[in-house]
């Protein structure tokens, strides 16, 4: 399971190592560490984001251990949405219940609409919408696009999908 963790460290030597210790003990495989020493929080702490592959059941143990070491755990949890895709819809996007269109994606549990921009040139003219959808993986992106294609057929919307980078 891929998890991400936002921590805040004190600005004294050895803190990063201290934060890594419980991850090591719980066999977490580190995917990335973002550590900005010059981007301090108002309290003077240093924010660090870890992305790790680890057994989700160990997360509480890790959090407790971190807190015991004086490290602030801001957020820790599943990093679910790792893929994103852009789509443009053209037609009566709003009149055909845009809320429903969005919730068809959001209700899947594996994908959600994270960005939406709408242009409506005139009352009876087709409007255009840009949607950014994120999902838990590449397959889920494809599933979300399939749903959107169905919605498009149903609501007579032109669904403009991105060209894939590689042929499958």
């Amino acid at each position: 399971m891929r998890l991400s963790m936002d921590l805040e460290l004190q600005d004294i030597p050895g803190q990063l190592l201290l934060a890594l210790q419980p991850l090591k003990e719980n066999k977490a495989n580190i995917i990335s560490v973002v550590h900005h020493r010059d981007h301090k929080t108002p309290r003077g702490m240093i924010p660090v984001r870890f992305v790790v592959e680890m057994d989700q059941s160990k997360i509480e143990q890790v959090k407790t251990k971190l807190r015991e070491s004086g490290i602030l755990v801001v957020r820790a949890g599943e990093d679910r949405f790792i893929e994103a895709v852009s789509v443009v819809l053209v037609g009566h996007v709003l009149d055909s219940d845009l809320g429903d269109t969005v919730s068809r994606i959001d209700s899947t549990g594996f994908a959600e609409v994270m960005d939406l921009a709408l242009t409506m040139p005139g009352v009876n003219e087709p409007s255009s919408a840009y949607l950014k959808i994120r999902a838990t993986g590449k397959n889920e992106i494809q599933k979300a696009l399939t749903i959107l294609r169905e919605v498009g057929r149903e609501k007579k919307l032109l669904v403009i999908e991105p060209i894939e980078a590689e042929a499958v």
């Binding site: 852009s86 789509v87 443009v88 053209v90 921009a117 242009t119 040139p121 003219e125 087709p126 409007s127 255009s128 919408a129 840009y130 950014k132 032109l158 403009i160 999908e161 991105p162 060209i163």
Partner: peptide
């Protein structure tokens, strides 16, 4: 629509009519 083209452009995309083999599709594509 020109609005669709503008929305796409703002996000770094053009809209082109793309033919795809072996998918056998022809459609406007980002």
């Amino acid at each position: 629509t020109p609005e669709a083209l503008a929305l796409a452009k703002k996000r770094g995309y053009a809209i082109k009519l793309i033919g795809d083999v072996p998918a056998l599709t022809v459609r406007p594509t980002l």
